[in-house]
C-alpha cells in the first residue's frame, strides 16, 4: 500500500522521565499475569507510560509533536504492554491542533508498527489529510512471559508524513500472514522500534531503503520500502 503522503521527517528519542508505579497498577497487572501463570510483578522501580512518553515528545522543542501544525491523523504502535493503562492517543487528540483520528495498533509484536502504517495509510487516503504523525514506542519493563528473552528499551521513533519540509521518500507498506522468517535475520530489538532505529541515518537515500519485521507468534511479516523522492 502506497502512503498518499510523502515521508517528510523521522527522528528517534530515548530520554524519558520515569516515576514510581501507582498502587493500582500492581493489582491490574497481577490479575493479567495470573491468567498466564505469572507471579505478581514487582511494583518497585521507576517506569514511564506511553501517555507520559507522548507528553514528553510533545514538550520537546524541535520534535514534530511539539509543533503547532494541524495534524489530522495520529497513529501510535507498540508491541509490549504499557506500565499503566494510559491514554496516549487521547492526550495527543486533546493537545495537537486539528486531530480528526488518533489511535494505537498493537498485538502484532515487531510487526505492530508496520500494521499501524498500513491502517494509517488507509485513513490518510480516505481523510485526504495533509499531515500525519506515526509514533512507534517501546518500554523497558513490559509484562512478559517468564521464558521471553526479548531485550527491551524505552524509546520512540517518530515519522512525519506530509506537512512542511522536503520529502525524504514515499512509503510502500505491506503486512502479510503466513510468511516464513528470513533465515539469519535477527529479531527486531526492542520489538517495535528496533527495525526503524537507524533509519534516520540512511535518509535521504538515492536507492530504495527497505525496513522489515517478523512476528513469529502470528507468522506475519512487515515490509516498508522507502522510495526516494523524485522516483516513483
Amino acid at each position: 500500500m502506497r502512503w498518499p503522503l510523502p515521508l517528510t521527517g523521522i527522528r528517534t528519542d530515548s530520554v524519558f522521565a520515569r516515576r514510581p508505579f501507582r498502587a493500582h497498577t500492581d493489582r491490574f497487572y497481577s490479575a493479567l499475569g495470573e491468567r498466564y501463570g505469572l507471579p505478581a510483578p514487582s511494583a518497585a522501580g521507576l517506569r514511564t507510560t506511553f501517555a507520559d512518553m507522548v507528553r514528553t515528545l510533545r514538550a520537546l522543542p524541535g520534535h514534530p509533536l511539539h509543533e503547532e501544525h494541524a495534524t489530522e491523523l495520529v497513529v501510535l504502535a507498540h508491541a509490549g504492554t504499557d506500565a499503566e493503562a494510559s491514554w496516549p492517543a487521547p492526550v495527543l487528540s486533546a493537545q495537537l491542533p486539528g486531530v480528526r483520528r488518533a489511535f494505537a495498533v498493537s498485538d502484532l509484536g515487531p510487526v505492530s508498527g508496520f500494521a499501524g502504517l498500513e491502517v494509517g495509510g488507509a485513513y490518510a487516503a480516505a481523510m485526504r489529510c495533509d499531515r500525519a504523525v506515526v509514533v512507534l514506542m517501546d518500554q523497558d519493563r513490559p509484562i512478559v512471559r517468564a521464558e521471553d528473552r526479548t531485550t527491551w528499551a524505552t524509546r520512540a521513533v517518530t515519522l512525519v508524513l506530509g506537512g512542511e519540509g522536503p520529502p525524504l521518500g514515499h512509503l510502500d507498506v505491506s503486512v502479510t500472514r503466513g510468511a516464513a522468517q528470513t533465515p539469519g535475520l535477527p529479531p527486531s530489538s526492542p520489538p517495535t522500534t528496533g527495525a526503524w532505529w537507524h533509519l534516520p541515518d540512511t535518509l535521504p537515500a538515492v536507492e530504495d531503503v527497505v525496513v522489515t519485521g517478523y512476528d513469529p507468534t502470528s507468522r506475519c511479516a512487515g515490509r516498508c520500502r522507502i522510495v526516494p523522492a523524485g522516483r516513483q
Binding site: 498493537s106 512478559v144 512471559r145
Partner: peptide, 13 residues
C-alpha cells in the same frame, strides 16, 4: 485496555 496478554502472547492471533 490496550493490552490483553503478556508479550509475546497475542490474543488476536
Amino acid at each position: 485496555v490496550q493490552f490483553t496478554a503478556p508479550y509475546p502472547e497475542a490474543v488476536t492471533a
